[in-house]
Amino acid sequence: MGSRAVGRDHNGVRAVAYVTDVREQRPETPAEADGTTELFSALGKMLRLLRERKGLTQKEFGQMVGYGPDQISAMERGVRVPRPEFLEKADPLLDAGGLLMEVIPDVEKAMSKARTRHPEWYRSYAALEAESVELHFYANHAVQGLLQTEDHAQAVFAKRRPFLDEATIERRVADRLSRQQVFERRPAPIVSYVIEEVVLDRPIGGRRVHADQLRRLLRVGQMQNVEIQVMPTAVEEHPNLGSAFNLLTPKGRGQVAYTEAQGHPRLITDPEEVRKIADRYGIMRAMALSPSESRKLIEKKLEEL
């Protein structure tokens, strides 16, 4: 069993954050946990067929429903979960005759099962991430999961040691992409990133994949509720030479932190420990390039590829 850290939340209630040994409790993705991959794959094929019958490109259809072509592509391949509100919009636009509306209860049920059958450590984090009004991330060696393109995520999981089989890679990529729907929530959460410059220089997946990844950073950084800042490698001082971390503020609750080192996840709820991490993050934001300066640096690195 894993060890535990005991503290109190912002209301003074005793809280326990478990440090789970993943060798004892292997993390699963929602798709792995409940077998929803087949459902979303079939639904994706249905969407593609209906779109093509209407003579629409992925870009054209995406503009009609407020999604990008890469998001439409991911849904049609079954690696991104089509949200109920998307299906409600798509049904009349694709002349589906209520077919897409009919599957909404099945989609909601599958999404619910994925959440409830997740391992406890990840279930706690995923639930907090999905409901948070503020999300802040520090990335020191890799692009954070919510920012990854599909090809980048594919390359990350394909090179993981020990090797994963193809089916597992596909499921984990699908899960990672489905989490990115946090950006589409309304009201939109406040999101910020501090990314080490070295992350922008590491061409995971090769030149083409890396270029697409940099373009995604630029796209997400343009969102009104998102700020991306780059920490230059040349800085002579740094307040956090430890691991990457996430800071989440669930609606109506106190801020929590999440870290993961060598596959060992930790959800931190102790207010004093969270405060120290938040303080370090604030210092890093002050030291990093501004969002506009960061954008210029990313654009420069993209041009140099």
Rank of each mutant, 00 (worst) to 15 (best):
M1I: 00
G2F: 00
S3T: 01
V6T: 13
V6M: 02
G7L: 05
A15T: 09
A17F: 03
A17R: 03
V19H: 00
E28A: 00
E28R: 03
E28Y: 03
E28N: 00
A33F: 09
G35D: 13
T36P: 04
T37K: 10
E38N: 07
F40Y: 12
M46E: 15
M46P: 01
M46G: 09
K54E: 11
G55W: 10
G62V: 08
G62Y: 01
M64S: 07
V65K: 02
D70E: 14
M75I: 06
P82A: 11
R83F: 09
E85M: 06
F86I: 08
K89R: 14
V103W: 10
E108H: 06
M111G: 04
P119V: 12
R123E: 11
Y138S: 00
H141R: 08
Q144T: 08
L146M: 13
T149L: 14
A158C: 06
A158I: 04
R161E: 14
R161C: 02
R161I: 05
P162C: 08
L164D: 08
A167D: 07
T168P: 00
L177I: 13
L177K: 08
S178E: 05
R179H: 10
V182C: 06
V182M: 05
V182W: 05
E184M: 02
R185F: 11
A188Q: 15
A188Y: 08
S192Q: 07
I195A: 06
V199Y: 03
L200W: 13
D201C: 02
D201T: 09
P203D: 15
P203Y: 07
I204R: 07
R207K: 15
R207P: 10
D212K: 10
R215W: 05
R216K: 15
L217S: 12
L217C: 11
L218I: 15
R219T: 12
V220L: 13
Q222R: 10
Q224S: 14
V226W: 07
P232V: 02
E236W: 06
E237L: 08
G252F: 05
R253E: 07
G254D: 02
Q255G: 01
Y258C: 06
T259Y: 01
E260A: 00
Q262H: 00
P265T: 05
R266I: 05
L267Q: 03
I268W: 14
D270A: 12
R275F: 05
D279Y: 14
Y281W: 11
I283S: 12
R285T: 09
A286K: 08
L289C: 00
S292P: 01
E293K: 14
R295E: 10
I298A: 05
I298D: 07
L302R: 15
